[in-house]
């Protein structure tokens, strides 16, 4: 369970988030949508303890991220990019993460296999393509077999095969009772994967509910999204 509670973030004089609240529940895939710069990444970064909130809280099972006992086994996170040093090999990157969480080395080979990186594991991260970097990020997130997944743009840069894999993978994770929170721009893709939708615009939540509730009278999620995020939302709602 992820609970975001009236989160406010100021950066210099700008207000990035102005008191947003929503929940991501176990057993469901929650999609987090919004235009570029709306505050999606900032929310996820605060949730993961990377940035500090000006006020409000972002809790994981009722605790702030930094108070988790062994975070890797509770929360798997993949933000934009691989999150790895260019000069290391993919395997070396996963190995130090495994060490930090006290996981056996065999687990590294397992996640390499799951994400289809076994053949590229000995290459430097700097030589990876965008999609391979994404897969490496996913591999790191899955390393601790966590009950909660937080993914920023997980399908960005993936090939069609990878996209389909992510979709079925996230569905099975959620159906076995795990929590999945993912941000994305790809409406069509999202509509097929998520159960709940949260839409953010200029640091404020403009829609929060199940997929059906958010789509409402609109024909598709995409239509609903544009109605909610364009300048004059009154016309369509």
């Amino acid at each position: 369970m992820i609970t975001i509670n009236s989160l406010v973030k100021h950066r210099r004089k700008q207000e990035i988030l102005s008191g947003i609240s929503f929940k991501a529940r176990p057993g469901r895939v929650t999609g987090f949508l919004g235009p570029n710069g709306a505050g999606k990444s900032s929310t996820l970064r605060i949730l993961l303890g990377l940035d500090r909130a000006t006020s409000g809280s972002a809790l994981i099972n009722g605790k702030p991220f930094a108070e988790l006992d062994n975070p890797l086994t509770r929360v798997g996170a993949a933000l934009d990019g691989a999150g790895a040093h260019r000069m290391r090999t993919g395997r070396a990157h996963l190995c130090w993460i495994a060490r930090a969480a006290g996981l056996p080395r065999a687990r590294v080979e397992e996640v390499l296999e799951i994400t289809g990186l076994t053949n590229a594991a000995g290459k430097r991260v700097g030589s990876y393509s965008l999609g391979m970097g994404k897969r490496l990020g996913m591999a790191a997130a899955l390393l601790g077999d966590p009950e909660i997944l937080v993914l920023d743009e997980p399908v960005n840069g993936l090939d069609p095969e990878g996209i389909r894999w992510i979709r079925t993978f996230l569905r099975t994770r959620a159906e076995s009772g795990n929590t999945v929170l993912l941000s994305s721009h790809l409406m069509g893709e999202l509509a097929e994967t998520v159960d709940d939708v949260v839409i953010i615009k200029q640091g404020q939540i403009v829609a929060d509910g199940t997929l059906a509730e958010v789509i409402g009278k609109h024909p598709t999620l995409e239509e609903a999204y544009f109605a909610l995020t364009t300048e004059y939302p009154g016309e369509n709602v």
């Binding site: 934009d80 990019g81 691989a82 260019r86 991260v125 700097g126 965008l130 970097g133």
Partner: peptide, 9 residues
């Protein structure tokens, strides 16, 4: 340069 927490390389 790749030294930025945002850039993905």
């Amino acid at each position: 340069s790749t030294e930025s927490s945002e850039s993905g390389g």
